Computed example of a mutant assay.
Amino acid sequence: MNPLEVLRDSLYFFKRHLGRIAQLCLPLVILEAVLQQGVDSAVGADGFSGYSVIVGLLVYPLYTAALILFLDARSRGEAPRARDLLAAALLQWPRFALLTALNTLLILIGISLYFLPGLWLMVVLAFGEYLLVLKGLAPLAAMKESARLSRGHFWRILLCILAVMVPLWLLKGASVSVYPPPQNPLVSLLIDSIHSFLQLFTTVVLFRMFMLIAEKPEP
């Protein structure tokens, strides 16, 4: 399994289906950015950062689950309607939100322990969302199975994640340098929405890797 081939195939898919992905996810991505702005404005720069996490838990599971369902459908040659995908994603929301909360908590704790444990957890838990949405596993079971599937593939998964996230982090940093705080609310909304939407490419990349690993026969 060549990570470069995974990235190439994922980029081709993302570009080919960009319109459908935008139609499915972008409204919720923008809603999330609007809510984040509202929370930031209400609590101030020194306010409790947990409110931003709560906003993410409200919206992120919806568009991510919908995207995963779309990816799975396209892998089988199907073309479901956006509203059907969103309806199915809504049913997944409680379990997905719990999984996201657990993953976020563990990764933040890991990052606080000299960063590397957080990076390790990010890789080990990378497939939990797909297992929950596509296999119907409970959050803890999905986390456990993700750890099992990632065994022996750590560096490949890490390379794929960093190949997507590092350019996005640099892009976000560059945008902040060009438009430093305090930003115009519309500019801030545009930057945050574009950044969050582009992060969906990570979901596409990890789905491709998940499918390759999950379909690999046991030795």
Rank of each mutant, 00 (worst) to 15 (best):
S10K: 04
F14L: 02
V178G: 04
L119M: 13
E129C: 10
I107H: 03
K216N: 10
F154A: 09
A66P: 04
P94H: 08
R151P: 04
A22G: 08
V43M: 01
W169E: 11
G19S: 09
R8K: 15
E218L: 14
V166W: 06
E145D: 08
A22D: 01
N2Q: 09
V205I: 14
L189N: 11
Q183I: 11
E32N: 14
L11W: 11
L198N: 06
F197P: 04
G110V: 05
A174M: 12
G38V: 04
L132S: 06
P217E: 06
P61E: 06
D40Q: 15
L102E: 07
A87M: 06
V187F: 03
V178H: 10
P27N: 03
L116N: 10
M143K: 09
R83P: 07
V43I: 15
L4R: 09
I194A: 14
G110T: 00
G56K: 10
W169V: 15
L91T: 14
P180K: 01
R16W: 09
F127V: 02
L119W: 11
I213T: 04
P117K: 06
N2M: 08
S146I: 03
V205N: 02
G118I: 08
V55A: 11
C160E: 03
P61A: 04
R156A: 13
C160H: 05
P27G: 01
R16L: 14
L58K: 10
L212N: 07
I194Y: 08
V34S: 04
C25L: 00
L159T: 13
